[in-house]
Every structure is written in C-alpha cells, then in structure tokens.
Design a protein around this nucleic acid. Structure first.
Lengths: 172, 172
DNA sequence: AGCACTGATGTCAGTCACTGTCATAACCTA
DNA sequence: TAGGTTATGACAGTGACTGACATCAGTGCT
C-alpha cells in the first residue's frame, strides 16, 4: 500500500513489494493470487457477513428487507476506516484494471447474496434483482460515505434504500 | 472466438490468434487492447445506444422511466443472436477474469447512464441508484434470455423492471 | 511521373506478471 | 529423536503487453 501510494500502481513491481516486505517474489504470489489483490485483501469478510445476515433474517421477511438487513450488517466495519479507504479509493480510481477487480468482487458478492435468497425460497429473477439492488445501494452509500466527512455508513445505507424505493414508487 | 471455443481461453495464446488471423502478435494488440477484449468487442455500441436513449427521453420522465427506456432501447440488438451469445457466455463463465471484464464493462455503462441522468438534473445518489438498477434489470433479463429459448429480450426487460418495482413496493 | 504525407503492418528487443518444480529450513507431533 | 507438515527460497520458464524503428501501400498534390 505504501509503495502504491508512493510511486503509483504500475510503477510498483511485485519484486518491489516483495523486497519491501523482506520476502521473495515467489512468496508474494503464495499469499496473494494477484498483484491487484493486495488492495482487496479482506474483502471476503464483507461477503461472509452479508451471507450470514441473509441466512439469519426472519423467515417472513421480504426479499428487499433481507437484503437491507444484510447490507446494514456490514456498516459497523466502516467506522474509523475513512482515512485508509480514501487513499485506497484514490489508487483504485486511477486504474481501470483495479476498478474491474472491485466490481468483480461486488458481482461475486451479489451472486452469493442471490444464492442465499434462493435458499430462502425467493425465485429468479427476483433473487438476482434484489441482490443486485442491495449492491447498488451499498455502492451509492459507500460513495457518499467517502465524499462526505463524518457521515455514518449505517444511516447512509438506510437513506439510499429509501431513495431506491422512492425511485421505484415514482414508477416508470 | 473459434480458437477459444476449440481449446479454451488460457490454452489459446495471442500468437495463436494472430497466426490464425494471418497477422502478427503486435498487430493484434493494435486492434485489441487486451486478449480478453476479443470477447467484448462491440460492447461500446450498447453503451452508446443507452446513453443516446437517456438523452432522448422526454424531459418530464421519471428517472427510472428514463432508465427503462434506455435499457429497452438495446433489446432489438439481441434478436437472432442467441446461438453466438451462448458460446460466448460459456467461455466467460468458465473464467473469472472474463467475468471481471464483463462486469467492468457494465459498471462503465452504469457510470455513463448515471452521468446522463445527472445532466438531466437528477441528483446523487438517485442518479447512481437508478443507473445501477437499470443494469441490474439488464443482467437479470439477459440471464433469462440465455436460459430460455425463444423469449424476446424486450419483454424480458419489461418483466424484470416490473419485478424490481414489485420488490420495492413490497417494502423493507 | 514524382514527391510528401498518412496509416497499417512487420520486426525486434525488452519488461514484468505469474507458474511449476525442487530444495531447504522451521515447526510440530508422536 | 524421527517423521511429517508448512513456509520460504531458488530458478527456470511462459506468455501478455509495450516501445521504437523500419517498411510499404495508398492518397493527394504538383
């Protein structure tokens, strides 16, 4: 992360990273599947929390309510993390390949949530749509959270959910 | 595409592709930024059509209505394309790196649609949410279109939009 | 015809991400 | 202490991708 911030992503070779960490290039690739993966390490935790929340939601809950609970469940993990998240986002936004990885992770997350919904009996395409809607809300809330200082991720998520529902109710 | 279908994506080198095309490897990279890009050639057309539809929508249209019009505008492009789309999807689904590229393209598409909405005066986070919702509908409809023979992309998109609105109205 | 300009291609050398394989050292357990 | 497991190093190799320069066909101008 330090190296990426110092010289930029492509100006940093894996050999550089390994050297800075006092390891071999080969060892780096035993810990990270990818050079990009450095920036997304720990993202799996997000998915696990959300999937668990989907499974733990009350049986009679509406699909969107389940998804809202799942997205809300990850909000606490963002407290106090804004400074680090800002530099990370700065690096990602400067590199399309990194944005690809990011949305790829979110797509896998949506996939997992959709699977969880299907296990609760929600049929397609509703399961897929609800999961994708949840990820959309997460992305919108995350963007707001980065843009505005001192706003709570939890309340931003709630607001974005309300906004989405308002959009839908305005109809087409 | 033939080579990918024959031996698979990673078993096909760029040198193979260039040879089959009667060209040099270097020339390949002058036409495609990437080895993956072969599978996504022409995807920009989708984005152009949708952005144009966003700009062309009536001024008083609701954000979601604008997005629905935009997504609906690309439906005709799918007629008669199912056979090719099926082999393409088969290749993509077998390779996470290709799925990443696919969702990356969709993310850029959503970004462009959101920009179009903002130019129409739709504020954030509504613009972002509506655009992402549109992409979610597209994805769901596309999946159904691939799964079921002889269904029209246009009507699938409409159904998925209705489904999304129903989900939202069921509330949270 | 002769000339300049442009664009597409070839050639070649180079960098770097990533992988397979084997050796080695640290460690844990019976 | 012996034997197995795990983390690391060493090393060679593949293949995607890039930069620099040469070549050549076409096009317009004189």
């Amino acid at each position: 992360m330090d190296l990426f911030a110092e010289r930029g992503f492509d100006q940093t070779t894996v050999a550089d990273i390994a050297a800075r960490a006092g390891l071999t290039e080969r060892t780096f690739f035993r810990h990270f599947t990818d050079k990009r993966e450095v920036l997304f390490y720990g993202g799996q935790l997000l998915q696990e929390v959300m999937v668990a929340a989907v499974a733990a939601a009350p049986p009679d809950a509406t699909p969107l309510a389940v998804v809202a609970a799942a997205v809300g469940a990850v909000a606490p993990a963002f407290a106090e993390r804004r400074p680090g998240a800002l530099v990370r986002q700065g690096i990602i936004e400067a590199h399309p390949e990194l944005q690809e990885r990011e949305v790829g992770k979110l797509a896998r997350l949506a996939q997992a949530v959709a699977d969880g919904l299907r296990q609760r009996g929600v049929p397609d395409p509703a399961a897929r749509l609800a999961a994708d809607a949840g990820v959309a809300v997460f992305r919108a809330a995350f963007a707001q959270w980065l843009a505005s200082a001192d706003r709570d991720m939890g309340s931003l998520i709630e607001e974005c959910f309300d906004e989405l529902i308002a959009l839908a109710e305005a109809g087409r």
